[in-house]
Structures are given as C-alpha cells and as structure tokens.
Design a protein around this nucleic acid. Structure first.
Length: 411
DNA sequence: CGCCATATACTACACGTTGA
DNA sequence: TCAACGTGTAGTATATGGCG
C-alpha cells in the first residue's frame, strides 16, 4: 500500500473528518447489510461537535441493537401486507394465516395503513380499537386485530425496521365472558324427538348429550367408538373441504365448482392436544342408539354397494363420505325450526351437555372429563353453568335422566 | 398454582353456485 | 325451484407457556 503514513481508524471503528465540502462528516459501521457488505452509515453536520454527537448516538443505538434498517420507510399498511403474505404465511398454520389476513385486509389496512411504521404511536392503535368497537365489532374481534398487529410489529422489530413494538404498549379492550344460555330440558326433549326423525339422528344426540364439537362429531370413526366398553375417543377433527381447479384450461368457475376439482385439504386431522383427544363415557341409552345407527348405516352400505366409500365414519353420507360441516350447520338450524325451539348456535348444544350432566348429578370430575375441560380451567368453566342449575332441586335432576334416556331398562 | 397473553383451532353465518 | 354444497369472512374457544 502506498499510502502508509496516513492515519486511519481501525476496521469497523467510526471516523469523523472534515470534508472538502466544508462540512463535518461521520461514518459509523452499524452492522452488515443484506448483501454482506458493511452497513456504514453517514452523518453530516456543520460543526465537529455536532457530528461527534451524532456519531456517538449512532454508536449507542448500534450497541443496544436499536438501529433501524435503511431503505424506504415502511407504511404500516405496506408492512402488514408484506408480513402477512411473505412472512406469516410461511410459518403459521393455515387457520392462523386466514385470521391474520382478514385482520390486515379488513381492519388494519383501511383503518391505520397510511401511518408510517416508525411513527406509529400506541394511541393510534387505542383510538382505532375504540373506533372498531364503536362501529360494531366485538371485543373479541378487536382483540384479535390487536394480537395480529402486535405479532406483525414484533416481526418488524425483529427485522430492525422499527425499534419498539407500540402494540405491546397499547391497551386492547378487555374481553368479557358472556353467560351461556343452555337449552332447557323441555327444549332438549323436543330437539331429540325431532332429531329422531332424521337420517343420522344419532349425530344430534351426540351433540346434545356428549358435548362433542362439530368437528369432533363429524370426524368420529367407528374405530374410535367402543360400544361394548361404553366409551368413545375423540381423535379426529373433520376439516372443511377446500378445492382447487383440476382443469387444464380455466373453466371460469370457482375452484370448488370446477368439474375436475381436486381436494386440497385432508378430510380430517388428528386432534391437536391430549386434552382434545379425550375419552367420553357413553350413557347406556347412547350406546343403544349408536348400535341402532350402526345397523342403519350397514343398510345404507348395502344399498350403495360399489359406491360406498369404506372410510369408517360414524356419521356419513349415503355413500360413506364424511359429512360437510356447512350442510351439518344448516341441518342444525332446520332442526331447531322443526322442533320449535329458539334459535341457537350448534356450538351451544355443547353447553347443554354440561348442564344436563350436572343435572344428572354426575360428579364434577366426570363432567369435566366429558366436557374436555382442563383441570384448573374446569372450575371456572363449570361456574359459568352453575348459576343455571344451582337453584334447581335434586328431584328435578332425578327426573331428567328419565326425560332424556327414557325409563331405566328393566334388563 | 392460578392467572394471563398469545397462538392456534374451530364455528357461525351469509351469500353464491350448481344440478337434479 | 330447491336442497346441497362452496367459499369469504366474522366471531369464538382453547392449548400452551410464562410469570408472579
């Protein structure tokens, strides 16, 4: 090297110099750029003192890992869209992605998208949450949006686009637990009566008596049902079908209506947690009913002949295919109407089971096991139902068994 | 151990499409 | 014409891990 006598700072150290332009300049290496070259920042001030100060600040920011990345300043909207499509989509589950995507597109981008990412304040978020609720969103939805933006901003921090996650500071609305209004014994009776007229009527008894979720009921296979021992195990969950085009040329329809459509989602998946894979004791009348149902299905199988898909679903279409959740949902609504019972969500039938079991005088621990409540969380969940049953007399409880399952079998 | 936030899984509803 | 099914999206429940 020719220029040996010139003094220079060691590699990686900051330098301050007076430039030919008559200004003071500072250079600080804060890290490594994406392409591997040193990320060397430049500051320019009129006096040496000012430049020194700016350099010190940069160094301090670097040492505490708080240097923002260079490049265009992200808008919140642009970041969210980038995050959800290019980052989140890759590493979160499909369900989570779906939720994030809706929050971003429906709520966050229209509501806050124009903010600069690095100038977003917690107050912006809080004001937005208030606005969401004022325009009819529930606390739960608002909370969901909050969680989404929190995760997205967390990723922005991790990647150095911003230094603090304002969503961690912002307060989200509190979630209030709502009391669940279970169906009364009379209503349940009426429903069961009406359900008994339907194909797959056992499906509704299962919902009302065992508290199975829709996905669990529709995912149930005979291999999970132990009629002799008197229990079932929930090990699978029916998934909503999803399709993609199978045709060479676009057929102009939505994928699900394409004549060559291909199923792109599994029919069911294994239940996520051990608590979800629970074992549920079958009251004797349910065992009987399931046996009857099994026979009916065997008949259908005969009729279907070659067409029968031997997949082993407890509740299946006339050709042995698993039921479609959406259709199942409509059946439920129809059932309510036919039974002359107040409208309610399918999911609420699940809460009826807890009430019924408590009314039956089943010990708490057994109820907890059947309802799939975790030890610990169970007491709280049970409390949500107890107010309904608390005032009721023990005598009523005795009658309930008969009302639901009929008089005790003389055998 | 109880509580909480977070991540994820699941459900509900509305509206659109199809084919018998 | 209608029941069944597909799909977009809002809403809700729960598993999990950390923390005081």
């Amino acid at each position: 090297m020719a220029d040996q006598k010139r003094t220079r700072q060691p590699n990686g150290a900051s330098s301050i110099y007076f430039g030919k332009d008559g200004k003071w300049h500072g250079r600080v290496t804060v890290g490594v750029r994406d392409d591997g070259k040193p990320d060397r920042r430049h500051v320019e001030r009129k006096t040496k003192a000012e430049v020194t100060k700016a350099v010190r600040e940069l160094e301090k920011a670097r040492d505490s890992g708080r240097v923002r990345k260079t490049g265009k300043a992200w808008s919140l909207g642009a970041w969210l869209e980038h995050w959800v499509e290019n980052i989140a989509k890759k590493y979160v589950s499909e369900n989570s992605y779906d939720g994030y995507e809706v929050d971003v597109r429906v709520h966050l981008v229209p509501g806050l998208g124009a903010h600069r990412l690095d100038r977003l304040e917690p107050e912006h978020l809080e004001t937005f949450y208030a606005k969401m609720q004022a325009s009819g969103s529930s606390a739960g939805t608002t909370h969901h949006v909050h969680r989404t933006v929190r995760v997205a901003l967390g990723e922005a921090v991790r990647r150095g686009h911003i230094t603090t996650n304002v969503a961690e500071i912002a307060r989200a609305p509190r979630l209030e637990e709502e009391d669940i209004e279970p169906y009364s014994i009379e209503e349940v009776q009426s429903l069961l009566l009406e359900a008994s007229k339907l194909r797959n009527s056992a499906r509704w008894v299962v919902a009302l008596a065992l508290g199975l979720r829709q996905g669990e009921a529709l995912g149930l296979k005979w291999e999970d049902v132990y009629l002799d021992a008197g229990y079932v195990r929930t090990r699978k969950n029916r998934l909503r079908p999803k399709y993609e085009h199978g045709c060479a040329d676009p057929c102009g329809r939505k994928a699900g209506y394409c004549p060559e459509r291909r199923q792109v989602r599994r029919e069911f998946k294994s239940t996520k947690s051990r608590a979800g894979r629970r074992t549920i004791g079958l009251p004797e009348p349910v065992v009987k009913l399931l046996r009857k149902h099994h026979e009916e299905q065997a008949r259908e199988r005969q009729e279907a002949g070659e067409l029968w898909e031997g997949k082993g679903y407890v509740f299946a279409s006339p050709t042995g295919e698993p039921l479609i959740p959406n259709t199942d949902y409509h059946r439920w609504k129809q059932l309510l109407a036919d039974a002359g019972v107040r409208d309610g969500r399918l999911h609420d039938a699940r809460h009826t089971a807890g009430t019924v079991l408590l009314l039956l005088g089943v010990p708490d621990v057994v109820v907890d096991a059947i309802m799939g409540w975790e030890p610990g969380g169970a007491a709280r969940m049970r409390a949500r139902y107890m107010h309904v049953t608390g005032p009721m007399l023990k005598k009523v409880a005795d009658q309930v068994g008969e009302a639901l399952w009929g008089p005790p079998d003389p055998n």
